[in-house]
Design a protein around this nucleic acid. Structure first.
Lengths: 138, 138
DNA sequence: TTTTATGTAACTTATGATGTTTCTTAATGT
DNA sequence: ACATTAAGAAACATCATAAGTTACATAAAA
């Protein structure tokens, strides 16, 4: 399955925006991400809607941070991007009455929910200024 | 992204094979899973290669368990099915020298690896006989 | 008014599980 | 022997979604 690399890309962009301290165009960001400016706008607009970045049109325009990095967590950006599940694993027909199928799905879902809670908690613990300073793994 | 429901489907099948105590054809399993027999063979063959089920051709043939349920864990089946990642989240160009990108990917990967380890550990703790008996969530 | 840059719609591509058709191979029953 | 049953396997279509692309509208500054 194709991976969703938007979180990685957006974090990368946000830290650069902080360091450059000036408006950066979608074309410039696209070069940085090895993609094209429409993909940049499409993804960045989700962060704009949540108030993490601002966009200005016309000469000298582009994207700037709307909040300092220490006020943004990985969880904030993750939530801005995805409504879809974190896992590639899915369950089967939940409208089925087979008790075995229900037990199977319950067991899998139980584990995935615990893992998702862990991911969200860890993402919430990391502010973006920690990435700018050079992230140190646990 | 389309979800991978093979784990859910295969666990369901294995518990039924245990309860039926006789060879079950791919056609019968396909009815049970609301799919078709080719999909069943394709997925079950991965479990056969790992020694969890046996297949017999011809009259009276079909699929049977090759190991008792208490000797099979969710992890065993998960490993038999997937070489691909558990997560829909992916990282960007790892051949890039940008230190910010590296820090971002390290931070995300750190969290995902911890979560994946948790999933694998939990899957390894659950044997399939627990599903047959009616799984009780934590 | 020209240039620059975002905003947006519409369409194509890539990926991998799933679905489907068709044929081959092997084992059993008559 | 021959028909039937069932797995094995190849080839191709479908689906969903991020990503990529093209084209044009809108707004702001030179």
């Amino acid at each position: 399955m194709r991976k969703d690399s938007r979180l990685s890309r957006m974090l990368h962009v946000l830290v650069h925006l902080h360091q450059l301290q000036q408006a950066v165009t979608s074309d410039q960001l696209a070069l940085m991400l090895h993609t094209n400016p429409v993909v940049v706008r499409r993804t960045m607009s989700l962060l704009r809607e949540q108030g993490y970045v601002s966009a200005v049109k016309g000469h000298g325009g582009g994207w700037t941070l709307a909040k300092p990095l220490h006020e943004i967590t990985l969880l904030d950006i993750h939530r801005s991007l995805s409504e879809s599940s974190l896992f590639t694993i899915g369950l089967t027909d939940e409208h089925n009455n087979c008790p075995i199928e229900k037990a199977v799905n319950l067991a899998i879902d139980d584990v995935l929910q615990e893992a998702e809670a862990l991911v969200l908690q860890r993402f919430g613990e990391v502010t973006l200024d920690k990435l700018a300073a050079g992230y140190i793994p646990r």
